[in-house]
Every structure is written in structure tokens, then in C-alpha cells.
Design a protein around this nucleic acid. Structure first.
Lengths: 211, 211
DNA sequence: TAGATTGTTAATCGATTAACAATC
DNA sequence: TAGATTGTTAATCGATTAACAATC
């Protein structure tokens, strides 16, 4: 088990954890059961030194002269990332993106079970996506007050997002995964913003200026 | 017009440019025509000093004693990001995510016109998404050899993504926006990876450990 | 044991912040 | 002009890299 985090871990480290997890999962899948920091460096594109530094924030998972056991290290990182926790999530906005997220099995594999979908379009309400019925957006708050919901996934347009996020925060939601291009000052919720549009602007920048 | 970039600009700076662009667009939309680095700092969450540093990589867009003209600064950043360039793009993988991207107007507003959609599912081939017909994935390379295509957007599963990316690179595509969880060593293409799954793992981490 | 590779400390590098002269 | 705020240099902070003793 990884050691307790007395000191806050720097965000660059946390951003690299999912990469380690992904690459180690690939290794395990391919039947590779051992890896050195140098070999992992070649897979991830981070330096071997950095990898050893990163991992030692959480504990000594390797063995001198041997390296790391891939399955063991993957599982440790899974624990650190909290992949084995289960969270109940709702999707707010049942458009293309919302339903794409809903159907994406990676979400469930990462510990999130989507239990409800909300939309304000009368044409969509009552429709089923897989086994889940789309419910009216104005029942969202009532729903989270009466069911255990840990996380809301926001895929509504920018204009609606801010108020929804503020209200979810006020109603005590633990986590918000926000795809809308708004920043909301929440009081206690943990917000993770995913800005798809920022990504394409980065691509645009590099197309113009080169890497 | 912004000054030429002799020295490469650090990636943290480039990551912040889309944020500046977004916040300044909001200001312009709200009729606000002037902003100081301090005020912009409050909107973006970066320090005023950092904002002034960032902008001065590209030129002096402000005025002492006044601040910045929002519309002017927004337009300069748009130029730097290359938003006014037009690129022709194809989407490879016409699933939920691929069609969500296809329909997302932000893509077009950022300079990318999606001209074709490809999929390998016989049930999808021939179907229309808006005005564009889904074409068979095995005609992708032929298509890019015979039409002007600047960018490919990859929303196929992991198993198919690596080979498609390698081939697109070999066929001379300029840019690849990749949503699949694979890293491919390309020879000359510019690849921007968007890892939706890494985002939710970060949320998972913070749910467990707090911010 | 000898060889390999980690865990960890110290050195370096780069990014952020502070400060202030320039100037609108 | 006086006040405000930039542009820019210098100082600080933090993250990455290098080095090597510990040890499997």
C-alpha cells in the first residue's frame, strides 16, 4: 500500500499518473511483467529520473537491480488514483457529447457509474439511452437531493452551465466534471474541467508555428 | 501584428493562450472594452505578472496607465493561435464522440471545416450526418491522397488508432487530433492528444485526496 | 559476488513572481 | 501634470535532472 500523503503532491506529478497507469496496463496486457524506470521512460516520454521521483512521492514500489513489477505498480497507481472506488454519476446534457460520455466504457472502468441522464429538450425527455431514461433537467436538483449522487458530468451549452454548476455545488455534490467553457467559483465541490476547444486551439497554434 | 517568434515559446504559455482568448471573448461579448492585467488575472486565475510576461512573448499589446483593449488583444491572440486560418479536416470514427466533434460548432469557429467522416461499420457507411455521408474507413487513405485534407480527427478505438495514425503520417497529413489512448511516433505530423480518460482519472484522484 | 537499478540527495534548469523604470 | 499600469529585468521558487550510495 502506498504511503500517506503528508505533503500535497505537485500537479505535474498528478497529471503524469494516468499516463503511468495506461502504459503499465499496456505492459500487463502484453504479458510483460517487469520494467525499469529507463524502459518506462521510453514508453511515457518522461525521464527515468522523473519517474523514480514521482513514484517515490507515494512509496518505494521498485526493487534495486530489478526494476518494477508491472502488475504490482499498475495496481498501486490504481489505488493512488482511486480507480477502485465506485462513484455514482449523472450526466447533465444528453446531446452527442453527453451520450458519448455515457456510453464510453472507460468511465465505468475508472470507477464511475452513470445512473441518470438529464436534458431540457422535451423531444429527448423520456427517450432511452441504453437502459437509462432521459429525465427533465428541472428535476436534476430534486433527483440529487433524493438519491446518492457523487458526481455530475456537465455537457450542456456554456449559457446553461454556470448556473447548473453553482446549484449542484450548493446542493452538496462532491465532484463536477465540466466540459463547458466556463469557470465557476464553487464552495466545496471538486471541479475537473475538460476543455476540448482549448485542445484544438493548441493544435491550431502548432500547425502555424511548428513544434 | 504580433512580433515574430525567434525563440520557441514555452508550452505552459501556449496552454494559457486559449484561456486568454476565451476570457477576452467573454469581455468583448459583455461590452467591456478595456482590461488591466490585474483584472484579467482575476478572470483567468493566473497572476497579473505572468499575464504580462506571457503577452510580451508576442508583443506589447497594452498601454501604460490604461491596460489592454479587449477586442484588440483578443484579435492578436486569435492571430497567434491561428484561428483565422482555415483547415480541412476529416473525422475517422463516426461513433458518438466522432459525430459529437463533427457537430460541435467550436471546431468550425476555431478554423477547422470537417469535409468527410469515415467508419468501418457497414451499417453506418452511407448514412448522413448533417450534409456529410459516412464513408468506408478503407477509403480514407485514397481520399486524403486525392483531396486536400490538412487534419485528421481520430475517434476510433485504441486497437485501430495506432495504424491509422501511422499511415496518415506516412501519407503526409499535417495535423492529427487524437482522442485514442495511444502514443504514436510520427515522422512529421503535428499530433495533439486529448485524453478524456486521463481527465476523469484526475477527478478520481482529487475526490480521494482533496485539492 | 558482480551487475543492475532503485531511492534519494544535491545541482541545475526553467518558470513564476516581484519590483520598478518607462510611459501613456 | 499626477496617477495608473505596462514592459522588462532581476530575484525567487519549484520542478526536473544528475549523481551516487544503498541494496536487491
Amino acid at each position: 500500500m502506498y504511503k500517506n500523503l503528508k505533503n500535497k503532491v505537485a500537479t505535474p506529478v498528478i497529471r503524469r499518473l494516468p499516463v503511468y497507469y495506461r502504459k503499465l496496463s499496456d505492459c500487463v496486457e502484453q504479458g510483460r511483467d517487469r520494467i525499469s524506470s529507463q524502459e518506462l521512460s521510453e514508453l511515457c516520454g518522461f525521464s527515468a529520473s522523473q519517474i523514480r521521483q514521482d513514484l517515490n512521492h507515494f512509496g518505494g514500489f521498485g526493487q534495486q537491480g530489478y526494476g518494477y513489477n508491472t502488475a504490482l505498480l499498475r495496481d498501486e497507481i490504481a489505488q493512488i488514483l482511486g480507480i477502485h472506488n465506485r462513484y455514482k454519476a449523472v450526466v447533465v446534457g444528453a446531446g452527442r457529447l453527453g451520450t458519448a460520455i455515457f456510453e464510453y466504457e472507460g468511465i465505468r472502468k475508472s470507477g464511475f457509474d452513470i445512473v441518470a441522464l438529464f436534458d431540457n429538450d422535451p423531444k429527448k425527455i423520456g427517450m432511452k439511452v441504453e437502459h437509462v431514461t432521459i429525465e427533465p433537467a428541472d428535476e436534476l436538483l430534486h433527483y440529487i437531493d433524493h438519491h446518492q449522487v457523487d458526481v455530475a458530468i456537465i455537457t450542456v451549452p456554456k449559457t446553461a452551465a454556470e448556473e447548473i454548476i453553482r446549484r449542484l455545488d450548493a446542493h452538496g455534490i462532491r465532484g463536477i466534471w465540466n466540459f463547458a467553457p466556463v469557470d465557476v467559483n464553487v464552495t466545496h465541490s471538486i471541479v475537473e474541467n475538460t476543455r476540448i476547444n482549448d485542445s484544438i486551439l493548441k493544435l491550431s497554434y502548432y500547425l502555424q508555428h511548428g513544434r
